[in-house]
Amino acid sequence: MDMLLPVLFALGAALSNALATVLQRKAALTVPKSEGLRVGLIADLLRRPVWLVGIVAVITAGVCQAVALATGPITVVQPLFVLELPLALVIAAALLQGRLSRAGWLAVGTVVVGLGVVLFAASPAGNRTQVPMTHWIPAVAVCVVAIAALVVAALRRPEGRGRAACFGLATAISYAMTAALMKTSMHTLDDGGITAFFTTWQTYGFALFGVCALFFLENAMQSGPLVASQPALTLGDACVSLALGITVYAEYVRTGWWLVPQLLGAALIAAGVLALSRLPLARALATEEKEQPGEGTAADAGTTAP
């Protein structure tokens, strides 16, 4: 029962983020593309109402995530966000008046089962409220260097899978750092009130990483196919958050022979996410070719492009 509240709020955050993903991706496809890192991209998107609705969903997700992180370990909360892609495709199918294929539902089931296996086998525990600077400094430094390297690598590549994957992984690391810093800020708010919340550096840290994550996400969506960016984002966020939970917050997971089902579950998640990213419905959200009402039958057949 102790884990029920963080799990419910994490699921609420995943659902809100899924809705935001659908709305933001549709909005991002309406602005001009660019070969470089578009500083004016956000300004263009601000003029799209659908993007603004997506931002409201992002804010809702942020509130739910904050409550989840304040009440449960990051190693439980963040892995649940792998459900964003399955939820996004279900929402997209409804908005497009189409249908998710049988292959799609199988992939959704694969992700859900894989996640269940991982969480059961890992049995994450621990909920440290404050972290010493000796833990924060190396964690932030490593993540910042990794993000910078991925952005540089992305800018050196033309539009395509490589560029999208780099931006997607940079987004994942930014999201993971946002969650890690937000967790401490929420505990600070609970212990010291609003004044303490606005005077701790972690509050401004998670805000900065959150803005960077949003920026990288928009560029990832314009850089290449969903099959490249989404697995990097979904799996990267879960893996980096798991690493931060263990190294920064001293949370722990079961090891020994329990690693075998954990790896099996992770493989199922990876396979499911990759399969979902290849669906026609998923590609329709990441290309300029919009799926029209009634075209869900093509997705239902499970066809994919080469």
Results as ranks from 00 to 15, higher is better:
F216R: 03
C166G: 08
I246Q: 02
L208I: 14
T129H: 05
L208Q: 03
A220P: 01
P231L: 07
V117T: 11
N127P: 00
G205H: 09
C143S: 14
I137L: 14
S241E: 07
W201F: 12
L115G: 06
R128D: 05
E159L: 14
V113S: 02
V113L: 13
G126D: 01
M186P: 03
H135F: 09
V142K: 00
A228C: 06
S185P: 09
A238G: 06
A220R: 03
G205E: 13
T200R: 05
T199E: 13
N127V: 02
Q130M: 07
T184E: 15
G114P: 06
T178G: 03
V211L: 15
A170F: 13
L115Q: 05
T184F: 11
T195M: 03
V140E: 07
L226D: 00
M182H: 05
M186W: 11
A165Y: 10
F120I: 01
Y175R: 02
G116T: 05
G245F: 09
A207S: 07
S185V: 05
F198K: 08
A232D: 07
L226M: 15
Y252C: 01
L235A: 04
K183V: 01
L169V: 15
A243S: 08
V144W: 10
S229C: 11
A238K: 03
A141R: 00
S185W: 02
L208W: 13
W201A: 14
M221C: 06
V248Q: 01
A232V: 06
V240T: 10
V151G: 04
T171F: 11
A228F: 12
A228H: 10
A125H: 09
T234H: 02
A121E: 09
V211N: 03
V145S: 06
C239R: 00
T247D: 04
G192E: 11
Y175T: 01
A170R: 09
F120T: 04
A228R: 00
L235D: 13
A170V: 14
P132D: 02
C212K: 00
V131G: 02
Q130E: 13
R157M: 15
V144S: 09
G210M: 08
M221H: 03
T184G: 06
A141K: 01
L181D: 09
G116K: 04
L242A: 11
D237R: 04
N127R: 04
V227G: 06
G205Y: 13
P158T: 12
Y204W: 15
M221S: 12
A154W: 15
R157V: 08
L189K: 09
L244Q: 06
S229T: 08
V152K: 07
P158M: 11
V118I: 08
G162R: 14
V227A: 15
L119M: 05
M177R: 03
A196V: 02
E251D: 04
M221Q: 15
M177K: 02
G192D: 14
C143H: 07
F197E: 06
V118L: 09
L235P: 07
V240S: 05
S223Q: 14
L214A: 13
L217D: 06
F206E: 14
C166A: 15
V248M: 08
G192F: 11
P138I: 12
D237P: 00
A243G: 05
A213C: 06
T247R: 00
T184R: 08
G224V: 09
A207D: 00
T199R: 10
T129G: 01
V112M: 07
F120E: 02
Y249D: 00
